[in-house]
Write a protein that binds this DNA or RNA. Structure first.
Lengths: 253, 253
DNA sequence: GCTGATTGTATCATTTATTGATAGTTATGA
DNA sequence: TCATAACTATCAATAAATGATACAATCAGC
């Protein structure tokens, strides 16, 4: 828009994408004026972009309220993503196996810049909604999965990430001190797994193990969520770590 | 592109979306020339659109092969979709319950034009990949879920759909005769469920029940997939139909 | 059920940003 | 190694997007 002195950059397309990105988990349905407010674009421009996205099937429109909302096409894109990422097909059967054997929530997480993104999720009854659906992004440093992936990188990479990557306070017990986070990562480096508690959700224990690529580095991890009321850390590891490590070992990074 | 005499239609944005849609389950990675071939756009135009989509994080690019592929953003869109559709949150806990109780593959399907789209899937070990991932679209008439949704509509709607909606031959046993399909739908209308066999996959039994809205019409259905080797139709109904109907009854359309 | 305010829709002259052709560069494969 | 294909960069022409504005439809409050 402003600072793109790039002769190949098509700002019209970028504006259209801005409309799509104006929707998020707390803005699931937007009126024209909402879109104007959230994107900062001209009213006319928003009108045209939303209209076009609607015609092209990317936005649904409530004929009564005239509000726009995501269409099924957003799920179709996910479908295509799944086919495009070879790790998904390799990991899915192993995760299903784990899920059915243990009855606990299990996820595949991948690194995505300085965040992790959950790309496969097999929830159980106790899993809350946000933790049941794919595509969720969380700051890597705040999650067991992100830390265990980082732990497979060089110490300088780890230090850089700990210094620069974002952290968010999700619970009153979320680790915010970057030295503490660094220690957690270095411990994961020793252990080959990472366990956290109360980080994104109170009374939630999270255990993650890396899916290592050929260089030993991990861009993905398998993570399980357990009730911190039912289990303490030690028991969680006893009951689930061996299977978790089997699972990750059985997936080629 | 060609026939859009619409002063609000932004063709540049539509061209960008064409690039995204050039990817599908059998075209997961596309070079510039592939994109030109699949979209029919000018090379320069494709170059600019792909470049912009890459900068905006919608396309990943292999620096070695220079091929484009879907990015994690495609999953994030699905995440937002899930929040935007209130049915998802209502259905998910019930599906999880079913899945963990029965250990069989269970899906939430929604009508999407003349297709169904799977919006939630809880696979089991025997589920093959394409049937494990959300966002898959199938012709409504070929699926138990599609038929049972149609069965809640008026007889004229059913007749019209049977006459016009697409059907595809997925297996050698796929019902292609539209009268047979109509009979299947009318039976589902009587029964309140629909059962099929060998339609999308050989030796697969599919049982679906509608999630009815306030008018009695269904835009969604819950469907289970069962091995046709382990079960015959009668046994499948005996073992799973009551729970399936409980599940759909517990979800407000 | 009215009325004023807000939101959404339609139109149009201006000009910017996209276009498509092409030349240049890098990669690929025989 | 050379020939060919794929990708990248540049630029003048102009088509297409822009943003201002006028008009119409809803909605909220009375």
């Amino acid at each position: 828009m402003q600072k793109k002195p790039d002769s190949l950059y098509v700002s019209t397309l970028a504006r259209g994408l801005q409309i799509l990105r104006a929707f998020d988990e707390s803005h699931v349905s937007l009126s024209l004026t909402d879109l104007v407010a959230r994107t900062g674009l001209e009213k006319s421009s928003v009108q045209r972009m939303a209209h076009t996205l609607h015609l092209e099937g990317m936005l649904e429109r409530d004929p009564k309220t005239r509000r726009f909302r995501p269409s099924h096409a957003w799920l179709e894109l996910a479908y295509t993503y799944y086919w495009s990422d070879p790790l998904i097909a390799r990991a899915l059967p192993k995760l299903i196996e784990f899920s059915q054997a243990k009855g606990e929530t299990i996820n595949l997480a991948q690194i995505s810049g300085d965040h992790i993104i959950y790309s496969l999720r097999l929830p159980n009854q106790r899993t809350h909604f946000a933790a049941s659906i794919v595509g969720r992004r969380l700051p890597a440093l705040n999650t067991a999965a992100g830390r265990v992936m980082l732990s497979t990188r060089s110490e300088s990479d780890i230090a850089a990430a700990c210094a620069e990557w974002p952290v968010v306070q999700a619970t009153r017990k979320t680790l915010m001190n970057r030295d503490d986070i660094a220690r957690s990562i270095l411990k994961a480096r020793e252990d080959g797994f990472c366990i956290t508690r109360d980080q994104m959700l109170l009374n939630e224990i999270s255990v993650a193990a890396p899916i290592r690529g050929t260089e030993g580095q991990a861009d993905a991890a398998v993570q399980i969520s357990l009730s911190g009321i039912t289990y303490d850390e030690q028991l969680a590891l006893e009951k689930f770590l061996p299977t978790l490590l089997d699972t990750t070992a059985g997936i080629l990074g």
